[in-house]
């Protein structure tokens, strides 16, 4: 029972109090790059989730057999293997999204969350808690991505998941008053949005505020 609740904590931590994007400030680059629309953001979130979970699992299982001196290169091989796997799956089943994500799937390898969690957690814990931790960090990262994708696509393109949400008749060119916010489509606005989310998050978690 005790072990179970501990795993539960490993899972809950990264969702809010220890969120990789909001608190650890990791993975910002891809959070800005792929969130112009909801669909790629969601696919990216799912991909990272799978990779972090299994990278943690595999490295944790190997942790006793890998000499400390070469552990980084082993981690890279494992992560690269997983990323290529995910990339191939995306190309096979959701080709259009894969095209949109372009290099960013490959760049999951360089996502700081991965190496960070493997180094900080998987090398010191048993496989199952490591898997939970990796999964939770992926989910924590994914939540932010989906929120960003939601806001940016809604106000930037007036659609969600590629479907029109804001009626065509509202737009200026068809006699309405509304216009899409072009700034939302640019990465700088995504950074501002991340900042606003962090602001609200710190506001409700006073203990996270730095001195």
């Amino acid at each position: 029972m005790a072990a179970k609740s501990k795993n539960w904590q490993y899972f809950l931590g990264p969702l809010s109090k220890d969120n990789p994007v909001l608190v650890q400030i990791l993975g910002i680059c891809s959070a800005l790059a792929v969130t112009a629309q909801l669909k790629p953001a969601f696919v990216m979130a799912a991909s990272v989730m799978v990779v972090t979970a299994f990278a943690n699992l595999i490295m944790s299982a190997l942790r006793k057999g890998v000499p400390g001196r070469i552990r980084i290169i082993v981690q890279l091989v494992v992560i690269a293997f997983l990323v290529i796997l995910v990339d191939q799956v995306l190309k096979a089943f959701v080709y259009d999204v894969s095209k949109q994500l372009s290099v960013y799937v490959g760049l999951i390898i360089t996502n700081c969350i991965l190496m960070g969690r493997v180094e900080a957690f998987a090398l010191g814990h048993r496989p199952w808690p490591s898997f939970v931790d990796g999964l939770a960090n992926g989910v924590g990262y994914g939540i932010i991505l989906v929120v960003l994708g939601f806001v940016r696509e809604l106000f930037g393109s007036g659609s969600l998941w590629g479907l029109r949400v804001i009626p065509e008749a509202w737009y200026v060119h068809s006699g309405g008053f509304y216009a899409n916010n072009g700034l939302m489509m640019l990465p700088p606005m995504a950074l501002i949005l991340v900042g606003l989310i962090i602001w609200v998050h710190r506001g409700s978690n006073k203990d996270l505020i730095e001195k």
């Binding site: 216009a179 916010n181 072009g182 700034l183 939302m184 640019l186």
Partner: peptide, 10 residues
Amino acid sequence: AFVFFSYTSF
């Protein structure tokens, strides 16, 4: 600048 980059055509 906000209007310029958000609603350039306006």
